[in-house]
């Protein structure tokens, strides 16, 4: 009788163990495969509502959504994957020439920073590295907006 009871207890623990394993597996798979809550930063230029580029920190991808209309031979924005930078052309002019805005991104730290920009007070490059909120380069009409899972649409 006691043997049966012992076996029953052992089986019960085994059963519960498998159940816990199953639940844990389900939890892990749900968290990893349901697209999660993607975190990204979007770069906007001018009054365009569409982001010109997006940095997706989850899939570690950079997406360019459209190119700027410029008279330059360089196509903006362009991505330098070796230096982790995205460069676009701002509206601020020096001697009649629009100036570049260089944005650095760090997939690991999930951060962005305005590395280079020309403007009277360099407000946005002085803000340093951010992991939330926004960097606004007013004279350059460039905005980097950190988008996390807090909202799906802004109206």
């Amino acid at each position: 009788m006691s043997n049966v009871s012992l076996k029953t207890k052992r089986d019960l623990f085994l059963g519960l163990g498998v159940l816990v394993f199953v639940l844990l597996t389900w939890l892990i798979l749900t968290l990893t495969l349901s697209n999660g809550t993607a975190t990204s930063a979007s770069i906007y230029y001018g009054s365009n509502r569409e982001a010109i580029a997006t940095i997706d920190f989850v899939s570690e991808q950079i997406s360019i959504h459209y190119y700027q209309e410029t008279e330059s031979n360089t196509r903006y924005p362009y991505v330098d994957f070796s230096n982790n930078t995205i460069t676009l052309l701002g509206d601020y002019e020096v001697d009649g020439m629009r100036q570049e805005v260089v944005i650095t991104y760090d997939f690991e730290k999930q951060s962005v920073q305005i590395k280079e920009e020309q403007s009277p007070y360099n407000v946005c490059s002085k803000q340093g590295e951010i992991t939330s909120g926004a960097l606004i380069c007013l004279p350059n009409s460039v905005r980097v907006e950190f988008k996390n899972a807090e909202e799906d649409f802004i109206l």
Binding site: T8, L14, G15, L16, V18, V22
Partner: peptide, 17 residues
Amino acid sequence: MATIFIKKILLISTVLA
């Protein structure tokens, strides 16, 4: 009886997994 019950749990768990 208890063993059958536990076997059922095991089976269900395996199917679920």
